[in-house]
Design a protein around this nucleic acid. Structure first.
Lengths: 221, 221
DNA sequence: AAGATAATGTAACGTACATTACAGTTCTTC
DNA sequence: GAAGAACTGTAATGTACGTTACATTATCTT
């Protein structure tokens, strides 16, 4: 009994590797030149295998694209979904989260993914759905939970934790991210990046009225 | 003596209108389907005139694209470069700026421009340069000037006015803008938009430690 | 190891489109 | 009002690429 559904093919041991190689090649090529400008021939040239197997595995260029995005979203955003809350003191925790956040966002792959989502979201609605649910939504939820803890401990005032979590992300990546991602300015040096994040965190701490006491490790859960 | 430089042609009275019509048509088509998918034939069909004159005026598809973006940037962002500071009280002024900001950003044209800048910025470096200098840079400067006034009047604490101005914009458009611009959620209803902006302004006022007094009209210049 | 099945490489097909060439039409100028 | 310039419409050219077809080679089953 063999169902030859378009996208579900029984994976021989070697075919899985081919599939992965093709996804990697697709990511590399599409992230570099964009969806329209990326040619399947170039992808196959890079992945090995053949055009025929590409069509067998993914059905079409769009199919390959979606599969690649799904796989890449999960991979790239993984680090964001479990922020490190181990630091001493609320401000230090927020700083650590900010640094991890920016480290991921400034990755070439994450920048390319961001461009894809912005550019092709209208034509491929599944793309931003996947992106937001894998990335921002999960980070916002985790962060909101942490902020609610601070509020309940009395060391900060966070009446709307989810909105505040979103605002945190906005402040941290800031205008800087737009300029890097569009190429209008170069990647920041570590020192500049650290200064940027610290200013953003300072502002955020004012915003949630973080008690200076909580800075010494009182406000954690 | 007739210099036939590629892009500089002496404009007969009628040619200027043709040129404008072609820029408008290019904006409409490219904003709808993206640069790669937009065909010159479709643009000419919409603008009237002929493919020949298009090539005579702009030299190439890229030339038309750049000319269109330059013209559109200035037009779309015009409202942003002179924010309305006439309201009574600092918080009311900030609210007015926030509303004007979002009104412009949520325009279909502004959204499309944003997508273009994000998507094609890497391939056309002039594009984000023009965008930022026409739009964000000018708004940030004006806003920073206003915030510096508040600081000097003692009604708020703004040690780094430019950074604070940027943070203002980030808080106001927030995560909401990303989701609308990628199509992952619909345009907000006026009531929801107003609530969003007010929450953002509330947070911002905490951030700059705006004196409640300034809410009654004391802090203006 | 022979036959069945799957994977590969290559070439062909059709289309879409940027760009150019050219012939026809309108406008300007003396 | 005719000669010349500027503008327009259409057709032709060349290329790039998504997709399909097919013949060849490798892999697996018994």
């Amino acid at each position: 009994m063999k169902e030859t559904g378009v996208a579900e093919v029984e994976q021989s041991a070697k075919m899985a590797a081919r599939r992965q190689a093709m996804l990697d090649a697709a990511a590399a090529v599409i992230f570099e030149v964009g969806y329209e400008r990326a040619s399947l021939a170039a992808i196959v040239r890079r992945s090995g295998g053949s055009l025929s197997t590409l069509y067998q595995l993914f059905g079409s260029k769009e199919g390959l694209f979606e599969a690649m995005i799904v796989e890449r979203c999960a991979y790239i955003m993984e680090e964001l979904s479990s922020p490190d809350l181990s630091a001493r003191g609320a401000r230090a925790v927020l700083l650590a989260i900010g640094h991890a956040f920016m480290r991921v966002l400034l990755t070439p792959d994450a920048q390319a993914l961001w461009r894809m989502v912005m550019a092709e979201g209208i034509k491929f609605p599944r793309l931003p759905q996947i992106f937001f649910s894998c990335g921002p939504d999960r980070l916002h939820a985790k962060l909101a939970e942490y902020l609610r803890g601070l509020d309940q401990a009395g060391s900060a005032r966070v009446p709307d934790p989810l909105f505040t979590a979103k605002s945190f992300c906005m402040l941290v990546h800031g205008d800087l991210y737009y300029r890097v991602v569009t190429g209008v300015r170069p990647q920041p040096e570590p020192a500049e990046l650290a200064a940027h994040i610290e200013r953003a965190i300072d502002m955020f701490c004012l915003m949630i009225q973080l008690a200076p006491l909580a800075d010494k490790g009182a406000g954690d859960r």
